[in-house]
Design a protein around this nucleic acid. Structure first.
Lengths: 335, 335
DNA sequence: TGAATGCTCTAAATCGTTTTAGATAGCGCA
DNA sequence: TGCGCTATCTAAAACGATTTAGAGCATTCA
């Protein structure tokens, strides 16, 4: 069995409290004792039990992440994770992954009350419809949390803290890029009916068309559900039109790269026949052929900031700390 | 403040121990009392503190993962994470991410002794040279662990448990595929000097050449260090040779796709001028252009099995449980 | 000399559970 | 009536730390 503070106390003939104080830098321990305790602790290989400490202090060095099972399917989420781990590592915290769906409905309450994490970061819950439910519980339990990845505006809740990208300006810059190249028939592949990122990007697409005096064509908007081949399927629909688009703006890079594949296989050229712009700048946007023009979203930075904001939330007072990150158009050879 | 078991005890006029027993299905509590306690617990929103339980029971529902900061850069690791989260979720465990490098050298000892995880899964530590050091500590602390992703054979340690892919048969099948197409000048891009996966794959490459009666050409082997563009750089070297290779076997898909890009930009055709085979079958092997022929490694399954093996290790006795997973050649249009 | 002060140290409570050992009461039976 | 048995409940210790309140002792000052 590993030595506890009691073993150390016995070994030195000192009280448990003196040991604890010596180890935690209290003033009322003589320098000699302090030194002796530290040395003996090292010799015996003593390390305090973080579980016991947490119980006593109601504190901990962990940050929870609530995320759906499929998080690791998406390069975007992986980008967030990159930032989350970096920030956590830098600040001395560890990440605990709580993968939804939870077994029981109140497993989350359990976690909240057990003081095992300092707060929660919510990732990708909106797709599975878990977001609202989760937020209600977290607010009731008064556990700080941050929503990472998209804007969120809910009725019946306090003001929420979220970390999102500036979808509007991102799409506008992408559209301006395409418009400047003379494109007038620009298709959009992505969900139009959803909320959050989907909605904001689609809205901005329409706004850009409007601004340019181009009338919106419903047949140039194709829905792309969340699965691996939705880009190709959408592109097939677009290529079957009478009046073909000359450019495609996709909701994300994954869809864009997938759609581009379909175009290449049909022996069409990119960007001469169809130009492409994605969204996100995931690593493979650059690895794809041709390299994909895209709107860069600072995924890693957003993850890092999420951790920072969460930790600030743990120290009241905390005004709303939502942050929207600027995006940047990265022009590659697909457009 | 959240209700504790004491609050419940006061509210019901029953002793703390009765509450605890009622909630934990003991036999010496009357059915009526049991029902009442459960109902009241629900009404008051009582949930036991997992921290306190863990302290008392010296148990927990967490599995630790020690991994380098750059894990999320690699699709291979992300594939492992996919399996890890799936298995953990299914079995009711949560994952705790310990991102190396640790602050202090003995932070790991700390974790081991605090009983905060049931065991550790080691991911990608060999690259940073942390593997041996970590293993020594884990063995000293007697915390069960599993190495995921590559074979490992260390001196001075007990027999280790690892989860790896069958590199040899994977490379042999890839080489047979290329040889069957008549390729004789097959290049290899990857690290030849390293241990583990690198070494095994390179060895199998040589073995296949040997078997086919083709003499090994040193100029057809190009080192590819671990960074984003190493595939392109290696390919540049290969394309500057007098006697060009007609096929390329890459250490992994990332390198293969990157190298293929270079070929395409030089206006060469794939697979007519140069055929490609990767290793791993990460998602973008299929998304790349042209879709990449590759050796599929069951990343997700390996992650799942790692969790299973680790949990078995926590219940003695445990013989060596290393597992090597079969691979599968997936032929796409790059070859 | 006596009181006050300062320096170390310790006892004991506490965090929220689980579990062992024992208490109490009711009941049947001789 | 008294004994033993069963069914139900409780007291208290334990897990491993931190922290408050106070004890003991030497020194200093009036």
């Amino acid at each position: 069995m590993r030595p506890t503070i009691k073993d150390l106390s016995k070994a030195l003939g000192l009280s448990v409290s003196t040991i604890s104080k010596a180890l935690n830098g209290y003033e009322d321990v003589s320098p000699e004792t302090k030194e002796l305790v530290i040395k003996t602790a090292k010799d015996l290989g003593y390390h305090p039990s973080s579980i016991a400490r947490n119980l006593r202090l109601k504190a901990n060095d962990k940050i929870g992440i609530i995320h759906p099972l499929k998080s690791f399917e998406s390069e975007v989420f992986v980008g967030f994770f990159r930032g989350l781990t970096m920030a956590a590592q830098k600040l001395g915290y560890n990440l605990v992954l709580y993968t939804t769906p939870f077994k029981q409905a109140d497993a989350l309450r359990n976690i909240c009350r057990s003081h095992e994490v300092r707060g929660m970061i919510l990732l990708g819950l909106s797709l599975s419809g878990m977001l609202e439910e989760t937020i209600v519980i977290l607010e009731e339990e008064q556990l700080p949390f941050v929503v990472l990845g998209h804007p969120v505006k809910l009725a019946n809740t306090q003001e929420l803290n979220f970390i999102a990208s500036d979808n509007r300006s991102g799409v506008l810059s992408a559209m301006q890029h395409l418009l400047a190249q003379g494109h007038r028939k620009i298709a959009y592949i992505g969900r139009a009916q959803d909320r959050e990122n989907n909605y904001e990007r689609f809205l901005a697409y329409q706004e850009a068309l409007n601004e340019a005096g181009i009338s919106f064509r419903l047949d140039l908007v194709v829905d792309a559900p969340y699965h691996a081949y939705s880009g190709r399927e959408a592109m097939k629909k677009l290529l079957s039109l009478e009046d073909l688009p000359t450019a495609v703006l996709a909701f994300n890079d994954h869809i864009a790269v997938d759609a581009a594949q379909e175009v290449l296989e049909k022996q069409l050229r990119i960007p001469q026949d169809v130009a492409f712009v994605g969204f996100g700048d995931i690593p493979y946007a650059r690895m794809s052929f041709p390299p994909m023009t895209t709107v860069k979203v600072p995924l890693r930075e957003m993850g890092e900031v999420a951790v920072g904001v969460l930790l600030e939330l743990t120290l009241p007072p905390h005004p709303n700390m939502s942050k929207t990150f600027p995006t940047q158009l990265i022009i590659r050879s697909s457009s």
